[in-house]
Structure formats: C-alpha cells, structure tokens
Design a protein around this nucleic acid. Structure first.
Lengths: 353, 353
DNA sequence: TTGAAAGCGCTAACAT
DNA sequence: ATGTTAGCGCTTTCAA
C-alpha cells in the first residue's frame, strides 16, 4: 500500500516554497519570482514528477463540449456505424464531464452542411470532430474553426489544406492496392477488370479516384498486362442499368472493384441477377447488405474502413487532448482490414468493432 | 459549465440522512437502520445516480498489483510482442496506482513454470494475467488461484477447465478455416495441401490440431476433393530437413498451411531454397522474419494473432475490474486479421498494433 | 446506527 | 509575488 508518486506538496517542501508557487511554475501561470522559479525548476529536474491526472480532473472540475459533425445516419448505414462509435465514446467520457453533441447534415445538400458547421462554430464548443465529405464547402469552415481557435479533428476524409489537429482514416491509395491484390490472387490468365465508382453524388470522387490510382498501380508495378476499365456511375442515372448490364456481358471480365460501400451491394445484386459466379468482386465495408452477399459468395472480399472505430477514436483523441493535454498523432491511419466469408464472424463478434 | 450529475451529497439531502449513511447503503456496508435504508433506496429509485469514478479513485487512494505470467520474450518474438503490450498498459495504469509486474518462465522448462506460478500466487497480487502454455502443469496452478481467490484472466491459450474471469484470444478452429479459405482462393485444379505443425515442443499441439480441424472442415464443407497431409515436426529432429525436402518434391503440392508463427518462417525458408514460387504459403503472425518472406512473396498470407493487443487488453480488463468494478467479457475473441503484402504496412503503422 | 470530519492530489480564488 | 485555503466527489475513520 505505498510506492507513492511525487506530489506537488513534496516538490514545494523540497524547493522551500508553497504549493501555489509550484503550481504556477508547472503551468507557466506567471507571477513567480526568478529565485522561486530557479528553486522549483532545480527540483523538477532532479525528480520525475508525474501529475496525478485523476486529481487534476477532479480538482479543476471542468466541463468540456465536443461537437461532432456527421452525415445523417438515417440515410446511410456506413454513417450509422460511425454514429454508433460516437454513442459509445459519449457514454465513456460522460463521467469526466465531457459532453459529446452530434450534429447531422444531409449528404445530398451541401448548403445545409455549411450552415450547420457555422452554427456549430458559433456555439463555441471546446473541440470538433468532423467528417468533411464536401471538399469545397469545407474549406471556409476550417477557416472559421481556426479563427475561433477551436481544435478539430478530421475523420474518414482527409483534406490536406484543412490543417487539422489530426486526421483519422485510411490511406486510400494503399487501399486500392490492397483491392488489386485481392483481385489478383490466383488469377492466372489476363482479362478485363472493372473499377466502379457508384455514388449518388460525385462529391467524394477525388477520394475514390485515389483508390483507383492504387488499384492500377498495383498491376503496373507487377508488370501484369490486363485491361482495366472504369465507370463513374450514379445509380439514379436512367442509363445505369443498361450500362452495368453491358459490362457484365463482357466475356473477358474477370473481376470488379467497387470503391464505395453502398455501391458494393449494388454491383453484387447485378452479378447475382446475371448468375455470374466466377467474377471476383471486391468492395468496401461491412454493411448489412454486403454481409449478405459475402455470405452467399457473390462478394469475395470486403475492405473494412471501420467507421465505428474511426469515429470513436476521434472523440477519444479530442477528449484526451482537452482533459489530459495528451497530443493526438497527426495521422492515425487505420489498418486495411480484409474481410472474408470465414473471418467476418470474428470481426462482428469482437468488441472492438 | 454545469450539467451536474447527482452527487452523494444530493441523495443525502433528499433522503434526510448524512452522506456517510448513503455511502453505507450504496456499498452494502451494513450498520444502517431499516428506516434509513428505506429512505435512501426510495431516492435512489427515483434518481439516476452515477458515481463519479474519478472521485472514487482519488478518495479511496488504493494500490493494486497485477501480476503477469509470460513466456520469456528473449527466446521468442511472438512473446516479445506480447511483452510490448504489457509495457504499454503498464505505463497507462501507473497513474491509477496500479502496478503491473511481469514474471517470465522458460518455454522449454515446464517445471519452472509451476514454481514461478506458485510464487506469484504466494505474493498475493490483486489479479493475474497468464498465458497458460503448458496444459497439464497449468491445472493445479488455476486450482491455487481459485483457493487464494485471486481473479485471473487467460490469454493466447484457452483452457476450459481453468474457469477464469475471462479468456482473450482467437477461435482456433475458425482460424484454421480462414487459413483454408486463403489457401483455396483462385485455386482451380485439385491437388495436395500440407498442414505443418512445426514446434520444438508438443505442448501446444492440442491447440494446433484445433486449427487443423478447421482447415480440413473448410474443404469438406465446400465438398472440395483435395488431398491433405499433415506433419507434426520438431525442427531439432535430425530427420526434419529430409522430411520437408521430400514434401516439397511432391509435384501435386499446391499449398502449405503452417500452424505456428515461428514455423511459418521455417517453411518459407524451405520454399525459397527449393525455388518454389507457385506454392501458396499461409502462416501466422507478424514476426520480423515472416514479414521479410511476405515482402518477397514467399509467404502469401499471415493470420495475425495480435499478441501485443491481447496482452494489453488482458491488463486493461483486470485493471478496470479492480479499479472501476467493470466486468470483463467472459470471452474476448479477437478478429482473425488477414495480412498481405499490400496491407501489412497499414497494420505496422497503425498505433493499435 | 449515525453524522461529522479528515484526506486523496490538484486547481483556483483569495488574502497578504 | 507568495502562501493559504476552500473546494472537486468520494472513502474512511472517529466520535457520539
């Protein structure tokens, strides 16, 4: 029942000053004479002082607000998984008097995004976690955050110009290379491969193309001469069905790589409809529909972006920053998890996901 | 700066008793009159009291000791990764006055294991984390732990009879099925597959055979008629080399599944020596040597058991149990992570691993 | 059986 | 500029 750490009180005694002075030195609060400063610093250099964070938290009895800006989880399961991550960390940090408030914006309405973001800024939260889906609309938002000196973390989508506290997400280029490798395993004869960007909007297209770049580069580096065709398709396009049908009738087609989570199930449904069992399908994320097609063998691989953990970690980083002054990594790049029929259950049951 | 939770003080005021009495009721410490009990419980039922764990920790200024029993990390990189996980959580919990002490035992010497385990038991730690490599030698150890009423968690190796607080690790049967699937992807013609259990000792053989069972079952369920041969080999066996050479000369050999992390590199070196590039190799864990062979393409897939996180999580569960009375899950089954040439970097760089 | 009070280590307001 | 003191919410001891 001992092995005590050094306390402020001890430092004060050793330096021959009061605990108030030590506290001032430790936090650079000023109002301390050069002599006192020297005495205290002398002790601090000899001794390994680790502040008791528990006591600090209790003593300073602070309340923090973390605002989260998230696409509406009602519309998209990917974002509802992210939301689940927020909910989780919300309850974890409640005991530290950190309030996590979520603000949704419509994936289809860019103007609303800015409006909400500015409102959030005006409400002066202590920190912000944001999924900046809309590139152009985000830039002025980041500008505001910086003006208001509110620390913020990006997740899911990286925007270099944002200059955030940190980014949480995956390396999309490398992600595309993983997709290509999964496509290539055990495929011996050359053929045609399709890269599909299926999305209602092109707002994410920059990022999606990054995946395609990785995908293509893989085959180039391996010096594999194959035929790659790409499509940027809006499922609401009247020509959508005919275009996909046409693609599937291509006899040399060996595999399809879909860059979006929602699009993965769409592509799978087409493969199923056409009864194409020998075309490899690689897509993204553990959405319910995707899991169904993984189970039935239509989808061969899913690359898991783990939105839940991304979101939860975002809140954690911010909370640790506010509460314990811990610095978050500038880039928290997530592993590129490969999900198959055989390991999917282990991912679903593990508490981490 | 508000949104306060209910405090003990509030409950005391509402119930018309002192905070001491409320505390006694909350912790069933007795010495409470029926009338007081009723009054306090009445309030507790109306109100959602969530104790401030920070304050509790500080108030009850306790010291806990967690003992970890681990194979010597000097000998085996797998265990040095586990050790790294311990080190990490050690520093995280230090601020809570929780001391994590590690005790190593020799992988080659079962008798030492028991001796050390009994010593640990006698030193009366508050909780124990143990990797029970030796099945028979472990049973009496668990017996002692139960007698001493020391809560303990198993990791890496599950022993049903141990009746521990929880087990942390992977589902080995399912792990074997993943191995089989990775072996099977894109393999069209039937052939011969080898399952290799390469280990200095047979102490883990029960568990290794569980992997083999999953491996075989995969092909049976898929109704794929292939030829599977298995070897239990000790690398120190004088016949070891010739046996492996013989295997590699089998022309119908399509793939090798190695059930141990160390054995994976051994098998890889043989494949390299024989210049066999078209034999698929699936093994375990991100040991340095394995990563080298993954890089060069000799190893096709690694299944990651994530010893570091297993160990760290073990300490976390115990610490949360002691500190915050949180109950750990009875089984914390880890995802069966698939590592390839293209996603290995993302695993290495992600802070989680 | 009960209430009062000291203390955990730190912060922050308040005298001096 | 410096020391003192009153909290933060809880545990634990000590009188009553």
């Amino acid at each position: 029942m001992k092995a005590q750490n050094v306390r402020i009180k001890d430092i004060a005694r050793l330096a021959g000053v009061s605990i108030g002075t030590v506290d001032r030195v430790l936090h650079n609060r000023g109002n301390v004479s050069p002599e006192a400063l020297i005495k205290v610093n002398a002790i601090l250099e000899q001794i390994d002082y680790k502040p008791n964070l528990i006591a600090r938290t209790l003593g300073s009895n602070k309340n923090f607000r973390i605002a989260v800006l998230l696409p509406d989880p009602q519309v998209d399961q990917y974002w509802s998984q992210a939301h689940a991550g927020i909910i989780q960390s919300q309850s974890e940090w409640a005991q530290y008097n950190i309030q996590v408030e979520v603000h949704f914006f419509d994936l289809m309405d860019k103007s609303v995004f800015q409006k909400i973001a500015f409102q959030v800024d005006q409400s002066k939260p202590d920190a912000i976690l944001i999924a900046p889906i809309f590139y152009h609309e985000s830039l002025p938002v980041f500008e505001r955050f910086h003006q208001s000196e509110i620390p913020f973390i990006l997740f899911n989508t990286n925007i270099k110009e944002a200059n955030p506290m940190s980014f949480i997400g995956q390396d999309l280029y490398q992600s595309g290379k993983v997709g290509a490798q999964l496509m290539n395993i055990g495929q011996h004869d050359p053929g045609t491969y399709a890269v599909l960007h299926l999305d209602e909007d092109v707002h994410e297209s920059v990022h999606l193309l990054e995946k395609e770049r990785g995908f293509r580069e893989y085959f180039e580096l391996k010096k594999l001469k194959i035929n790659i065709i790409d499509f940027i398709l809006n499922p609401n396009d009247p020509l959508f069905n005919s275009k996909l049908d046409q693609l599937l009738n291509e006899p040399s087609l060996r595999g399809i790589f879909v860059s979006t989570s929602k699009g993965t199930a769409v592509a799978a449904s087409f493969l199923e409809k056409h009864g194409k069992n020998n075309i490899r399908l690689v897509g993204y994320d553990m959405l319910e529909e995707n899991l169904k097609y993984l189970e039935s063998g239509i989808i061969d691989f899913l690359i898991n972006q783990n939105p839940k953990r991304q979101a939860a970690l975002g809140v954690d980083h911010l909370a640790n920053h506010l509460m314990f002054k811990k610095t978050a990594p500038a880039n928290d790049l997530f592993p590129l998890e490969v999900i198959t029929q055989q390991n999917v259950a282990s991912y679903l049951s593990s508490g981490i996901h």
